[in-house]
Amino acid sequence: MANEIYGLVAEFDTPGSLLRAAEGLRDFGYKKFETYSPFPIHGMDAAMGLKDSILGWIVFVFGATGLTCGFLLQTWVSVYAYKITVSGKPLFSFQAFVPVCFEVMILFSGLAAVFGMFTLNSLPELYHAMFNHPRFAIASSHGFFVSVEAEDGLYSEVETWQLLEKLGGKHIATVEA
């Protein structure tokens, strides 16, 4: 492998300094960098220059599919597959189909929200270079980290290192891929 270094990692003390570091990297023109925190930080998406999540649209499509499937299932069952008159009601009683349509829509949307989220995040991903960093274990408890990937066009081990230092990063280190 030509590229054995994943990138540089720096540690920050507070959510605020992490946010400013992200802004600094964004303003410098870096694209392939990431911040890690034990909880989501307000304003970080803008600080990193990220676009809005597309998850809502995925859920919308699946929800609409669920609604349609629920309606078609009930209509097909009641009108074609198993014609049985109950208390004189018409076979196509669409009013009575509303609850099941709604539930199937919610079911499809919920499944899309959860599995869509995992897919967009490419999880499960049990191996990741960041886990090679010895200090990274605290990122899920009280650590705030920035990583800059070696694949970023602006990456240079010396200059990026200096920038991270200037932004207030501590324990700066390279991480192997």
Binding site: A22, E34, T35, Y36, S37, P38, F39, P40, I41, M44, D45, M48, L50, S53, F118, N121, L123, P124, E125, L126, Y127, H128, M130, F131, F136, A139, S140
Partner: peptide, 11 residues
């Protein structure tokens, strides 16, 4: 599942 608290994940 390999959660690492990345902001792209949190988003």
């Amino acid at each position: 599942m390999g959660w690492r608290g990345a902001n792209r994940h949190w988003q």
